[in-house]
Write a protein that binds this DNA or RNA. Structure first.
Lengths: 172, 172
DNA sequence: GGCATTTTTGCACTCCGTGTAGAATAACAC
DNA sequence: GTGTTATTCTACACGGAGTGCAAAAATGCC
């Protein structure tokens, strides 16, 4: 991340990253398939944590409520300074197609995880969990991108506003 | 596509594709940045066509109705044999992360295009077009993936069913 | 200490993307 | 037709990326 911000994404070679981390180029490849994956590793951790939070919600909550609870739990378990890192990553992804692609692939994995987590709960089984999750993540994306364009507003507030608007019909 | 189906995605080199197309490796790179882009080029054409169809909808239609009209118009302008190609691509993307990533990036571009197209129309300006488009595309994705798992059901029928369920609150 | 397991490293190899400069081709005026 | 452009294709070269393999280093356990 530091190197990418300093020199720009394209000007950072895997070799440079490896050297900065005091490991060999080969070892880098043992952990990450490419630069993109390394750069998005932090995000991947959040994604996994999100799915975990969802599974820990009380089973009697409705699906939509549980999703919103999980996002709030995740946010409060962050250190606040993560906000800036989040923003930096989002901006990088916006400007570099290969990063954007991999970021979206991560979100697609998250969608699958969340869907499975919802399947495990009690509740109306006829609900189209796939659609529910997709709508929820769509709301999150819109919220994050709106937050990223404005200055100094609270992420959680924006998320709440957007999800109120999107999710009303799915609530309860 | 032919080579990929025959040998598998990873076993096809750019050189092989170029040779099969009677062009040089360098010329391939003049048109496509990588294998993935070449393989998804057909999809890219549909995507562009979709946005074009949306712009041609009568301006007095509500946004959601226009989106559904565009997808129907696109489908009826296909040759039916395209269905199999669609399915093959979707299956490939499901199994190859790098393809999935680029496919999702394409869809992200489409989302932006559709959003812009909706902005140009008359209609309630306060509508959150971003959310609307995201929900719509989410519905499409769910429909296509459901269609892809079942045998021999009509794509358009599945799409209609899912969009009915997702879009009710946005309709009209 | 010795020994087994895991991790890291160096090397070699193929493939990929790109800059460059020249060859082939197309387009067009005459 | 010829000559003159402009466009497209190609060959070559170069640095970087990802991977299999086997040796070296580190780790953990007795």
């Amino acid at each position: 991340m530091r190197l990418t911000v300093e020199r720009g994404f394209d000007q950072v070679t895997v070799e440079a990253i490896a050297e900065a981390a005091n490991i060999s180029r080969r070892t880098f490849s043992n952990y990450f398939a490419c630069k993109e994956e390394a750069l998005l590793h932090g995000e991947r951790l959040y994604i996994d944590a999100f799915a975990r939070h969802l599974r820990e919600r009380p089973p009697e909550e409705a699906a939509w409520t549980a999703l919103r609870g999980a996002v709030r739990a995740l946010y409060s378990s962050w250190g606040r300074p993560m906000d800036r890192e989040w923003a930096a990553r989002t901006r990088l992804a916006r400007d570099h197609p290969s990063l954007l692609a991999r970021q979206l692939a991560n979100q697609s994995r998250l969608a699958q995880d969340l869907e499975e987590a919802l399947e495990e709960r009690v509740g109306p089984p006829g609900v189209r969990h796939g659609v529910l999750v997709a709508v929820f993540l769509a709301g999150l994306r819109v919220a994050v991108s709106a937050w990223n364009e404005q200055e100094g507003c609270d992420l959680l507030t924006v998320v709440d506003e957007v999800l109120d608007e999107v999710g009303a019909p799915f609530d309860g």
